[in-house]
């Protein structure tokens, strides 16, 4: 699974961290960041919902 985050687009809504807290968090600037060791959280079925939850299309998830 490949996760792409675009911090330039991010508006800090926190929707990603709310939807899949095992994978996404916010850094000190309140912008999207990956949780250290996030690979363990990629089994969360809600993860696939994150790109749709993001208000500014800053997150892409693709298989492989």
């Amino acid at each position: 699974m490949r996760i792409t985050i675009d911090r330039d687009r991010c508006i800090g809504s926190g929707q990603c961290a709310m939807t899949a807290p095992g994978v996404f968090t916010q850094d000190d600037e309140a912008l999207v960041a990956l949780v250290p060791g996030y690979e363990d959280g990629t089994g969360d079925p809600r993860l696939l919902d994150v790109p749709m939850a993001c208000p500014v299309q800053a997150i892409e998830i693709s298989e492989g």
Partner: peptide, 13 residues
Amino acid sequence: QRRMLIPSFGVKR
């Protein structure tokens, strides 16, 4: 304008 304010409204804060 939004960039300046994002850190003040972050989830952790």
